[in-house]
Computed example of a mutant assay.
Amino acid sequence: MNRITSLLGIQYPIIQGGMVWCSGWRLASAVSNAGGLGLLGAGSMHPDVLRDHIQKCKLATIKPFGVNVPLMYPQIEEIMNIIVEEGVKIVFTSAGNPKTWTSWLKEKG
């Protein structure tokens, strides 16, 4: 174990990129099931689609997975609320300053 595997609760220090259009629930759950950290790429998903992918990922794996969120997303507040409502504990950000959401996400668990 190292700091990353301990922090994220994964077996291997491998984090799959949250690639737009490519990182749906099938890829994220496969990576998580293999011992890495799978990420859903929210950048290509409308809010209802993201919720669906999170729910399907939860059914496909009991292991940790996360969501990558481009902070320039037009419906960012709705996306962040969905992540919290669905109980996703790991959030990666891109395309913006993560400080904007870090405190809020920590407060929500």
Rank of each mutant, 00 (worst) to 15 (best):
N2T: 04
I4E: 00
S6D: 14
S6E: 15
L8V: 05
Q11A: 13
Y12H: 13
Y12A: 08
P13D: 05
I15C: 02
Q16F: 00
Q16R: 02
G18E: 08
V20G: 14
S23H: 07
S23D: 05
R26N: 09
A28K: 05
A28S: 14
A30R: 11
V31Y: 00
N33C: 11
N33Q: 14
G38V: 06
G38S: 03
L39T: 05
L39K: 01
G41T: 10
A42F: 03
A42N: 12
A42L: 08
A42C: 10
M45D: 08
M45A: 07
M45N: 04
P47F: 10
D48T: 13
V49G: 02
V49A: 13
V49S: 07
C57W: 01
C57R: 03
K58P: 12
A60L: 07
A60S: 15
T61Q: 07
T61W: 06
T61S: 13
I62R: 14
I62P: 00
I62H: 11
P64S: 09
F65Q: 09
F65G: 06
F65C: 04
G66W: 02
V67N: 08
N68P: 07
P70R: 06
L71Q: 07
L71S: 02
M72K: 03
M72D: 13
Y73G: 00
P74T: 02
P74Y: 02
Q75V: 01
Q75K: 14
I76E: 04
I76R: 13
E77S: 13
E78S: 11
M80P: 01
M80W: 01
M80T: 11
M80I: 15
I82H: 10
I82E: 10
I83E: 09
I83F: 08
I83Q: 10
V84I: 15
V84A: 12
E85V: 02
E85K: 13
E85F: 00
G87L: 10
V88C: 07
K89E: 14
V91E: 03
V91F: 04
F92L: 09
T93M: 04
T93I: 03
A95S: 12
N97L: 12
N97R: 14
P98M: 12
P98R: 09
T100K: 13
W101H: 12
S103P: 04
W104H: 11
W104G: 04
W104Q: 13
W104E: 11
L105E: 10
L105T: 05
K106H: 14
K106Y: 11
K108V: 06
K108N: 15
K108F: 06
K108G: 05
G109E: 11
G109K: 11
